[in-house]
Amino acid sequence: MAEVKLIGAWGSPFCFRIEVALKLKGVEYEFIDHDVHNKKSPLLLKYNPVHKKFPVLVHNGKPICESLVILEYIDETWEKGPSLLPKDPYERAMVRFWAKLLDEKCLPALRKACLSRGEEQDKAKEESTEILKFLEGTLSGKKFFGGDNIGMVDIVANFISYWFIIGQELAGLQVLTKEKFPKLDEWMDEYLNTTIIKENLPPKDKLTAMFKARFEAAAAAGGGGGGGGRGGAPK
């Protein structure tokens, strides 16, 4: 039987992506909870010496790094279970496009909206709203970004449905609401109530406590610091 280990942290949306994919595929794995602040741990130095980030998937002793890369590896390695990416080359390219946009544009904007103040926050809120409008448009007539079933874009966007909603509430923001984004709201409800997602989400109270600590640290540092469950700069 293939040996599969996932090195990550319980509160990271990036690590949760990998757990969701493995569970959808029915792959048994061992989760190794890593200290998010220890970038020099022997484990990370061994399996991800270049970036020293998690998650890291270790399959039969071979490490695979970066969550988007790991998701594609899982989809290509284990054919059992639902496909995370479509077979059509164009549609696969579009999935990669949206996944990259979520990580490189949407996530930083949402994080900054929660953690910054003043003009910087206003700018981040505007940028977040524009990106969310694009995402709203892609959901027209669809249950999930992947169609009738959860796909890679849904898994990558998990930080919007749970992590950002908690952060938004703590920051007193009204960026993502049912009134502004009804389709995204419906998608969040469908996604979070899917059995595999619902049964494996990090406890909200524990995640909220972690966010509060990071918000306080960011405020003490003048705002704009890290957050959103990304501790240790995983990806």
Rank of each mutant, 00 (worst) to 15 (best):
F16I: 10
F16P: 03
R17H: 06
I18R: 03
I18W: 01
I18V: 15
E19H: 04
E19T: 11
E19W: 02
E19I: 14
E19M: 10
A21H: 04
A21R: 01
L22G: 07
L22N: 10
K23H: 12
L24Q: 02
G26N: 02
V27P: 01
E28V: 10
E28A: 11
E28Q: 10
Y29Q: 01
E30H: 08
E30S: 09
I32V: 15
D33M: 03
D33Q: 02
D33S: 11
D33L: 10
H34K: 04
H34L: 03
V36A: 10
H37L: 08
H37G: 08
H37W: 11
N38M: 03
K39P: 03
K40Y: 09
K40H: 06
S41I: 10
S41T: 15
P42H: 14
L43G: 11
L43H: 05
L44P: 02
L44W: 06
L44R: 03
L45H: 04
K46T: 15
K46H: 08
Y47M: 07
Y47D: 08
N48G: 10
P49F: 15
P49N: 15
P49D: 15
V50P: 00
V50T: 13
V50R: 08
H51Q: 12
H51Y: 14
K52Q: 12
F54L: 15
V56C: 11
V56A: 02
V58F: 01
V58A: 08
H59K: 00
G61F: 09
G61K: 05
P63A: 09
P63Y: 03
P63V: 06
S67C: 12
S67I: 14
L68D: 13
L68P: 02
L68C: 04
L68K: 04
V69A: 13
V69D: 11
I70V: 12
I70Y: 01
E72A: 09
Y73L: 05
Y73R: 08
I74Y: 04
D75T: 14
E76T: 13
E76N: 07
T77M: 06
T77L: 03
T77K: 10
T77N: 10
T77C: 06
W78D: 11
W78L: 08
E79A: 12
E79H: 04
E79C: 02
K80P: 00
K80R: 05
G81V: 13
S83H: 09
S83G: 06
L84W: 00
L85M: 12
P89R: 12
Y90H: 08
Y90Q: 05
E91M: 03
R92C: 01
A93N: 02
A93W: 00
M94Q: 14
M94S: 11
M94P: 01
R96K: 08
F97L: 10
F97I: 08
F97C: 04
W98G: 01
A99E: 14
